[in-house]
Amino acid sequence: MSTTNPDHYRQALTDPAAKVWLFSDNAPLDAQAFTLLDYSVNGTPQPITKTDHPDGRAYQATPSSNAANSGQDYLVSYSYSTLIEPRGHAMWIDIDKPTNGVSVELTHTGTGIERITPLDFLTTTPRIHRSERGSAAPISISADGWIQPKSGVVFIWTLTSELNELPQT
């Protein structure tokens, strides 16, 4: 779910099955900048329902499999895309449930971002792929094994325009 309404955001946080994004209602980007791309259970794609609201957008993926009720372990996999404001200088991806393996990719084509520093707060050793300075190639962090809640990944960046403002030494 993505929303510009803080009350809807706080209410959605109480749902343990929900992943919620809050967008500022006075930012250049709105809650429509978030898109759930796919959702699967045990490798089987699940139908996704999208609902637009005046202050945001909600996606619902209800597994057609009985995996969650069978008492067996099951794998949930999903990917999403979101637009973020480059002037924000950072993006945090929070791991809020025990997760077996994670892969995060940040694409910054056409954003005016010169340099990105990825930081991980994962409970396993990650693999980090960095592009060359000034390159528009995506930067990715991935890790195998179990990752515990309260872990995450942060991308911090510098804009090209900011580098041009620095005094030359």
Rank of each mutant, 00 (worst) to 15 (best):
T3F: 04
H8A: 14
Y9F: 15
Y9V: 04
R10Y: 13
Q11K: 14
A12H: 05
T14M: 13
T14P: 04
T14L: 15
D15H: 12
P16N: 10
K19V: 00
V20S: 12
L22I: 06
L22T: 07
S24V: 01
N26I: 06
P28S: 04
L29Q: 08
A31K: 04
A31D: 05
F34I: 02
T35G: 02
D38W: 00
Y39M: 02
Y39W: 03
S40A: 14
V41H: 00
G43W: 01
T44F: 00
P45M: 02
P45S: 06
T51H: 03
T51L: 08
P54D: 10
Q60V: 01
Q60G: 01
A61D: 03
T62I: 11
T62G: 03
P63F: 05
S64Y: 00
N69E: 14
N69D: 15
S70H: 09
G71H: 04
D73Y: 02
V76A: 01
V76T: 00
S79K: 02
Y80S: 07
S81M: 08
P86M: 04
R87K: 09
G88A: 10
A90L: 11
D94G: 09
I95N: 05
D96S: 12
P98E: 09
P98H: 11
G101E: 01
G101L: 00
S103D: 04
T107D: 11
T109I: 05
T111Q: 07
T111L: 12
T111S: 14
T111V: 03
G112V: 06
I113A: 13
I113T: 09
E114W: 15
I116F: 12
T117V: 15
T117I: 12
P118S: 15
P118T: 09
P118V: 06
L119P: 02
F121H: 11
F121A: 14
T123A: 14
T124P: 05
P126L: 10
I128M: 11
H129K: 12
R130W: 10
R130Y: 12
S131T: 11
E132P: 04
R133L: 15
R133F: 12
S135Q: 07
S135E: 03
A136C: 02
A136W: 05
I139Y: 10
I141T: 09
S142N: 13
A143W: 06
D144V: 03
G145R: 10
G145K: 07
W146I: 09
K150D: 15
G152Y: 06
F155T: 10
I156R: 13
W157T: 10
L159N: 08
T160Y: 13
S161A: 13
N164R: 15
E165D: 14
